[in-house]
Each structure stands twice: as C-alpha cells, then as structure tokens.
Simulated assay, not measured.
Amino acid sequence: MRSDILKGLFEPGTRLRIVDLSNRYGVSQMPIREALQQLQGEGLVTLLPQKGASVRKVDDRFVSNMYDVRAAIEAMLVRKAVEVLTGPVMDKIEHLQLEYERCASSGDMEEALAYNLQFHKAINELPQNPEAVEIINRHWGLIVSLRNTFGFSEKRIEDIIEDHRLLVNALKNRDGNAASVIADQHVQKAKADLLTNMKSKAEFKR
C-alpha cells in the first residue's frame, strides 16, 4: 500500500476503503487497518472518525509550511553535523551523492529518490538529535508521494546535483555556516519547484 501511494497510484485526497483495499491486496481487514495506522504516522494517510481513511490531501499552504519546517531543522542539523563529522562518514556521504547522480543521469528517479533520502539522512543523523530527525522523517514519504504525482521541473535535477556538490564541499571544509545556508536554500528551491508543478497540473486539469 505504501509503495502504491508513493508511486502515485492513489492521488492525494483519494478515499481508502478497507473492503476495497482488502480485496486489492488479498489480505484480511485487520492488517489493512494496521497498515493505515502506520501510514497515518508517516504522514501519508489521514484517518478521521466516521469518515475513514484517505490519502492525505495537501494544498499550497500545507506544502509551504512543511518545507519551511524542514528547511529550518536541516539548516540547524547540518551546522551541528560539521562538528562531529568523521572521515568515514564523509566518504559515505560522497558515495551516496555519486549514486544519486548516477541514477538521475540514467532516468531512474525512483532509485535516485532513495539515494537522496539516504544522503540527507546520513547528514541529519550525525548530531544525534532524534527529536529533530523524527519531525523531518515524518513527511519524507509524503514528499516522495507528491514528487511521484507532480514530478520535477526540467532543470530541478541539475539544481539538486549542484546543491549536493556544494553541500559536500562545505562539509569537507568543515564550514558549518556555509553548509547551513546551502541546506536552507536547497529546501526552499525544492518547495518552489513542487508548488510550481502542483499549480501547473491543477491549471492543466481545468
């Protein structure tokens, strides 16, 4: 169910009826209910009394707020990450970035998104602030779902690669302030790109 949501097979706002899901996935209703509860915790599903479950419906304000929170937290985490960064971890971060570039250049965006998550996760977990990381992780699945639904602009992948390279260099130089600025701008550009794509698709549907 998570995979189908992340692939965009269920668009935001789609009602998720337990009976239909049980038939679709060939399991009883109990594991469906448990899965919906877990997906609610990940931010992919909304559960309301008397109304049941639906794929989380988002608007411009929600997306903007979600990215603003992410930008603030990631800017803080990357600044602190510089203080505890080790050589082996730096090597891992570089490797993940190269893998992202490889997948992006071959057009495998599903795999590229997975490496993008690992790249940011490797940095964000360095300061050992699980409360901050939990807030960021809560919406990662939702962000992937939105990207699968609305896609990227033509030059967005090039921007991501450039930002990642700048961030890697700032980390190598142990420049926490520069890394923090890059991280903030990176997230803000991602927000602007997604909002533009959401608006374009809405206008196309009209």
Rank of each mutant, 00 (worst) to 15 (best):
F204C: 00
G41R: 11
L194N: 01
T149D: 00
L195R: 13
N124H: 14
Q38D: 12
S105C: 02
A112G: 06
R156H: 15
V84Q: 10
D184T: 08
F119W: 10
V19Q: 09
M90F: 15
N173G: 11
T14W: 00
G141A: 13
H120I: 05
E99C: 06
L113Q: 13
R79D: 10
D175M: 08
V78S: 04
E42R: 14
G151I: 02
A132C: 13
A122G: 03
L113V: 07
A179V: 08
P49V: 09
S200C: 06
R102H: 12
Q29E: 15
A112H: 03
R156N: 11
A114S: 11
T14V: 09
G8F: 06
T14K: 10
W140D: 13
L77V: 12
G176L: 08
F62I: 12
V55M: 08
A170D: 07
A178I: 06
R33G: 04
R2V: 04
N169R: 15
D193W: 05
L9D: 05
A190I: 01
K199Y: 10
Q38P: 00
V84P: 00
I123T: 01
D60E: 15
I32N: 05
L21C: 07
L16H: 03
P49Y: 07
L194M: 06
R33M: 11
S153A: 10
C103D: 08
F119M: 04
H95G: 00
G13R: 02
E131Q: 13
S28W: 02
Q128L: 10
S54G: 02
A202F: 10
S22Q: 10
K80N: 15
M30T: 15
V144W: 02
K205S: 11
D91Y: 07
N177C: 00
N177E: 15
Q37A: 12
K191D: 04
I5G: 04
Q118T: 00
I143V: 14
G151P: 01
I161H: 04
W140A: 08
V63A: 03
E42N: 08
E99N: 11
T149E: 08
K205D: 07
K121D: 11
R174N: 12
H164G: 15
S106D: 05
Q97E: 00
I182N: 11
S28I: 00
A104Y: 01
L195M: 14
L48R: 14
A178G: 14
K205Q: 11
I135D: 01
D159P: 00
G107P: 06
G26D: 09
I182M: 12
L6I: 15
M76V: 03
A179F: 03
Q37M: 07
A104R: 01
N137F: 11
E131W: 09
A183P: 11
